[in-house]
Every structure is written in C-alpha cells, then in structure tokens.
Design a protein around this nucleic acid. Structure first.
Lengths: 191, 191, 191, 191
DNA sequence: CATGAATGAGCTTTCATTCAT
DNA sequence: AATGAATGAAAGCTCATTCAT
C-alpha cells in the first residue's frame, strides 16, 4: 500500500481534473484517497497548495518521460516525429493533468499556489523551448523565438487533446499526432 | 448613458476574465457596472447565464469583425498573413474574452451555461475551419481535417496571447502574429 | 370596472390564501389585480397592512351576512341548526379567507399588522360569543364561558373546513355542517 | 451534555413556534442550540426538513404519552374526562408545537417537508379517531364519522389553547379542559 | 499519525419598497 | 393617479479549515 501522501496526490489529480479547482471538494479527494479529511492537511497546508502540488508532480513525470525519450539516437526527422507522438500519448494519458494545466490558470486559486503553477508551466514551456533550440543548433529547426514557439506548441497540443476528449473517441491519438506533426513540420500552406 | 444590460455585460467580461467564474463576485460586477446587485438579475437569470452571455456576445463581435475582413479581395498569400494579424489584434483587444473562453471551460459553471459556452466555442472553431476549407478548395491550403486544424489554431493563438499578457509587454502583437504566421505557413522545420 | 383598491383587495385575498403571507409576492397580487406594482403602495402602506386589510374586510363581510341571518324569527333549535349551516357555507365560500385567518397568525407578519389581525379574530370570536350569550339568556344555551366556547367553535369550524379542502370533495359542506351540529348540540357521548 | 441533534431539535421547536417558519432564522436556532450554523446542516438537509423533523418528533412524544394514559383501566366516563385533561395538559406543555402544527400548514414550506407535516397531522388525527372508534364499539360514543370528528377535536383544542396563550394566564389549563369536556360530552344546548 | 464533527465566513439570489417619469 | 426599473438588505446554504480525541 502506497503512503498517504501519494494516495492523496493521485486522488487530487483525478478530482481536480474532473471538476476544476473550485468545484472540487476536499472531502471528495479524501474519500477517493481513502483517508480522512484531516489527513490531507497533514501533508498540504491548504487546498490551493494541494492543487499546485498535484499539477506540479504530474507534469514533472511527463517531462521525465520525454527527457528519457530524447536520449535515444535516431535521425532528427524521425526523432521529431517520434517526439510529437510521444508527447501526445503522454498528454492524453495524463489527460487529467493537461486539462487542469490549461483550464485553471486564472481561476482565482490564490496568489501563492498561482505562482507555483505558473512556474510549472514556465518550466514545461522552457523544456520544450530547449528541445527546439537544440534542434536549431543542429540545423533542423528554423531560428525563431523558441520560448514563444514552445508556448504555441503547448497551446496547440492542449487544444487538440481537448478535441480528443470532447469527441469521445471520434478522434484518436494517432490523428492528433499526425495533425500536430503536419502543422509543425510544414505548416498549412500547399506548396 | 448606455443601457443597463450593456453596462452589465461589459463589466461582466472584465471581472470574469480577471477573476475567473468562481472567484468573480456578482457584487463586484454590479459595482463596476454602476448598477445595483438586483439589477443584474433583472436581465440575466443567474450568474452562470450572465457568464455565458458575456462570452457569447463578445465572441460574436470578434467573428463579425473577422468576417468583414474576409470580404476584401487580395491574393491569398497576403490575405492569409492579414487574417492572422487581424485575428491576433482582435484577440488581444478582446483579451478578457479569450482568457475566459480558454480557462473556464471545465470550471463547473452549471450544465445549462456550460452548453452555451461550448456551443460558442464550437461556432468559433467552425468558423475558422470554414476559412481553411475555402482556402483548400482554392488550392492554397493542404487538404486535412479542418476542424481539428482549426481547434489547433485556436489553441495556438490562445497560448501565444497568454504569453503576451504574462510578459507584460515584452512580447508585442506583431511578434505574436509573425510567430503564428511562420508556424502556420511553413512549420518549424528548416528546409 | 371596480376601482383599484377593490381590485387589489380581491386579488390579495386570492393570492394570500393560496400562498400564505410570506410566499405571496406583491408582484403577483398586482398582476392579478391588473395594476402596476407601485399602485398597491398608493393604497396600502406595505405588504403586511395589505394583508390585514384583506383579512379584515373579508371577515367583516362574513359577519354582516351572519348578522342578517340572525334577524330572522324562527324557533331557536332550528335557528341553531341554520346558523351552523350558514356559517359553514360562508366559511367554505370564503375559504381563502379562513385559511388565512387560521394559518398565518404567528407567521411573523410584523407587529402592526399582527395586531390588526388579532383584533379581527377577536371581533369574530366576540361576535359568536354574543350569539351564544343571547341564546343563553333565552334559555337555550347552557351557561358557560362564552368567549372560550366561541373560540372553540371557531377552531372546530376551521379544522373541519380544512378537512373539506384537503379531502378534495370527499367531504361535502352538508356533512361538515352536520358533524358540527351534532357535536355542538349534544356532544359525542352516547346517552 | 445532550448530543447536537437533540439540542438543535429543541431549539428549533422553540424558535419555529415563536416566529413561524419563514420568520425563523437558521442562525437563531443555531445560537439557541449552542452550535454553529453549519452543524445544523450536518443533521438536517435544509431548513424545511429541520422544521418537519421538529414537528414530527414532538408530536410523536405527545401521542406516546397519550397512548400510555389510555392503558389504564377506569370506567369510560371518567376515562373520557381524564383523557381530555391529559390532552390539554400535554398540548399546553408542548404549546410551541401545537402552534406550529396549526399555523404553518400552508406557509409555503416546500413540498417535501410539507408532505411530512401533513402526514404527521394525519397520524395525529387518525390516533384520535381511533380512540373515538374504540369508545363507539364499547357503546360510549355515538356512531359518527370519526375522522371528521377527530379533526374537529384537534381544531377545538388548538383554538382553546391558543386562547390560553393569548390570555396570558387569565384562562388556565383546568378551565380549558372543563370547557372542552363540557362541549364534547353534552354539547352546548341546555336540556 | 489519523480522524471527522464542528465551524462560520462568504456566496448567490429574492423581493418588498422606492421614485423618476 | 399610475407605473415598473432599480435597489440592497436579508437569509439559506456550502465547504475549507480546525482541533479534540
């Protein structure tokens, strides 16, 4: 049996993503985690901090997974494709998280937790910008404002993934990855 | 002096976008609109419906503005560029709205209002998909899943605009339009 | 067309009896009376006073009708019977009123209106006590505390009439009058 | 120290009877019970249900007390007298309750709670009707519509007890019991 | 470490009342 | 005399947080 902190975090991600920050009730998280309400306050100072911890640790996992993917040694063009596919897969798998990350950023979470979350988002965007920059140094990516582009990519991915969730299976992971790849590699214009 | 309904809607957009749906207080909206709290309930049945009305009517304006832009008769390549620039400008100008549109979609607004908002988002995505499809018929845009692409474009724009708002002026409207244009026309890959 | 004051009073009786004092809304009364909300405040200082006026004037009518009945000159035993039948009929006809009179006496109407209503009830009880006293002087009614008995009679009638309203026709006016007459003339005990 | 539920119910009976359903404030009940406002909602889903619980449980007590009185084995005539005296005593003792039971039946309490209360009143009337029916079988009570008569008795008692409360001591318990007994045993008519 | 009964600040919403027309 | 748009006090209810056990 995992320890309480883990169980709480896992339950928190699930509940927050389903309901959003304000609609989520601490009690439901406690119940889902199989602990008492009070126990949550043993590990997290308040709801907002629990929220940012949930987001933070989840995203950290995604980044670690992507990072390890980056180690492999294949030609860039293929690498680029794989990277996108992996991102989409991870993003959809951690769908809960992504919904949170996108939807709750201005929902009045309180300044402290807010800062935490923006920092996480920053780190995520920075991570992607880093990948782009490396690709650029190796001559595969056009020079550009990498952070801006990275922010755009995150938004693109979010939006496509939301489409997936809302389409209830009509649009699958592969289609999303292909659309992303198509747009990001060559744009929309016919040659 | 504008009529009350207008004043309330305007104030609502401002407050909702700053605070998010749940954090926004009806009282603050009333104060900002310069009307009594009760007056709001004369025009809107409840907070959620006020919210969806605010989003809805704002977005309608944006679409109308874009629509009129589309009438002009210039070569497509240039048109494409202009369209993106106009979109970004409008989006930034109605920044309040865009933040709402993106951030509040799952925040537990109540089913009725929720449906309204999703419908608006749908309409917006559909509108963009229509533009892409027309471009494709004329041979300027690659064939693809236009609705998916449109969803992606909205996400891309959102994310870049948010970057603008958070950078507090470090990234300007032109840069965002250029980045969008660069990505959407040719993608990220160096040739 | 009756004048506004009349129309308002009539509508007030109808609405108050259907909904009770607190549930009744001034707007509904105005609508039913076919006047503007503001007009009501031209004739009555506030909701509570409108309420007590409605009760008061209605009860006054009942008493007037009973009074005229009392003038007739028939043997007391028959008179007693007729009186009860007439009372029940009137009470049921003015059912709205009776419900109000019974149900709203402690509902927190505000001290001023409250006093008015209690005064009306007093007057009604006094009226019946007077009838009993006269009957006693004529040797038809046992000596007793007439006001107390009158209060009891009003309660008895109320309760039976409510039974009528709730039974939705299963118990008719005649049955109620007979039961009242049976109890009041000889009591419940078998000889 | 009694448990919270008990304390709340007791306070509720007191406050509801003094103010009536609508005028009664949950906060005042909480204060009187010596608990926090929220605690009330731990035990009762809403104000209306608290109300019906208060009425219900109080009346149940009265019926239990009367029931035990009925077990005793004395001649019926005396029994009848005793029963009325006991009823009046109980009714006056639980005066709060009786006021509620009579006054609030149409005050717009909400359908669910309303039904509960009507059911309680039904049960009470049914209980008395049962007593009458038994007396009739034993030959002491005239045959009649027992439920109708029972409803009348409740109304009679109510009204007399209200008289007691309003007379501020001028009319005592014994007088009321005697008046009831006089009316119910032999009626008002002189022989 | 763990709990959940208890709390009360804070929210939305209603509706009697006013007053400019 | 008549109106009804506007008001804001007032109240029920929720839920994050605490703390005695």
């Amino acid at each position: 049996m995992k320890n309480s902190r883990e169980k709480i975090l896992k339950a928190a991600v699930a509940v927050f993503s389903r309901r959003g920050f304000h609609q989520a009730q601490v009690e439901e998280i406690a119940k889902k985690a199989g602990v008492g309400k009070g126990t949550i306050y043993l590990y997290f100072p308040n709801k907002a901090m629990l929220f940012s911890a949930a987001v933070s640790e989840g995203l950290e996992e995604i980044m670690a997974a992507l990072q390890s993917e980056l180690q492999s040694d294949v030609p860039f063009t293929e690498h680029f494709h794989i990277l996108i596919r992996t991102s989409v897969t991870l993003y959809l798998k951690h769908g809960d998280l992504s919904k949170i990350l996108i939807n709750e950023l201005t929902s009045g979470i309180g300044p402290a937790a807010m800062k935490e979350i923006e920092a996480v988002r920053e780190r995520f965007i920075g991570f992607i910008a880093g990948v782009l920059e490396q690709g650029s140094r190796d001559g595969y990516i056009k020079p550009m404002d990498f952070r801006l582009a990275a922010a755009g990519i995150v938004g693109l991915m979010d939006s496509l993934c939301r489409f997936h969730f809302q389409s209830r299976g009509a649009v699958d992971s592969a289609q999303i990855a292909e659309t992303m790849h198509a747009i990001l590699s060559n744009g929309l214009l016919a040659k």
